[in-house]
Amino acid sequence: MSDKQSTHFGYREVDNDAKADLVANVFHSVASRYDLMNDLMSGGIHRIWKRFAIELSGVRKGNAVLDIAGGTGDLAARFSRIVGDQGRVVLADINDSMLRVGRDKLIDTAHQGNIEFVQADAQDLPFPDDSFDCVTIAFGLRNVTDKDRALRSMLRVLKPGGRLLVLEFSKPESELLGRAYDGYSFRVLPLMGRLVVGDSDSYQYLAESIRMHPDQETLKQMMEDAGFARVEYHNMTGGIVALHRGVKA
């Protein structure tokens, strides 16, 4: 390993400046079938997880919402309907392939009127201070190289009283569920990726990145350390997924 700072790409240790390109290659590979794989992997339950996030967001008509790592636009489409013509939704993603798929999808479904598309790095968001009523990041934080820096960036662009919601895979609450989930993640997901996308390596990375992501309490502490107040989390599907919510004081 070089003298450069290192981080994890799945179970591998890599230089910090290499991770972004490695993650980018994963999402370039899977972008065209991302929605299909989400439905197959979760049995459609990811839609319930996202609906719960939207309910806890407190977003109302006229609000400004930033959806980071917004990918193919599931959350952005729903927020677009909520905020209405006087509101604003920014779908941001660091990966141009994912952003292109999301843009095409939302244009096809006529939700594009109040949605902007921005290629952006969560660690250095290109927006002024105090810009958004709500920031969301769903299944994206584990791919960020410097999570602490990204959380501080999200805090900066939120208005006082604004909310951050982090929806992410987390640690199952029971050991039995954890063992079953490991078996599914490391055996079924790569096979599914090979059959559906022609890429098993990306889904091996997915399984590994979930295991390397901070657990519920650790992420809660990270959000508090970044400056968020009233941080709480809600486990879903036995803790396989957790929704963290924090407020900018």
Rank of each mutant, 00 (worst) to 15 (best):
M1C: 03
D3V: 09
K4C: 10
Q5I: 07
E13H: 07
V14F: 09
N16M: 13
A20G: 09
N25Q: 15
D35I: 00
L36Y: 12
M37K: 02
N38D: 10
S42G: 13
A53I: 03
V59A: 15
A64L: 03
V65R: 01
G73H: 10
A76F: 05
R78W: 12
S80W: 10
V89A: 08
L99T: 02
T109S: 15
G113R: 15
E116Q: 13
D124F: 15
P128F: 13
D130Q: 14
F132L: 07
D133V: 03
V144Y: 11
V144S: 00
T145G: 05
T145I: 01
D146T: 00
D146A: 00
K147N: 04
A150M: 05
L151G: 03
R152A: 12
R152V: 12
L155E: 08
L155G: 08
G162I: 03
L165C: 09
V166E: 06
V166H: 07
E175Q: 14
G183D: 12
S185T: 08
G193Y: 04
V196R: 00
V196Y: 01
D199F: 01
S200P: 09
D201K: 15
S202E: 01
L206M: 08
A207L: 00
E217S: 11
L219K: 03
K220L: 11
M222G: 06
E224T: 10
V231K: 03
E232W: 03
N235A: 11
N235G: 10
M236G: 14
T237E: 08
I240H: 06
L243A: 09
R245Y: 00
V247W: 02
V247L: 08
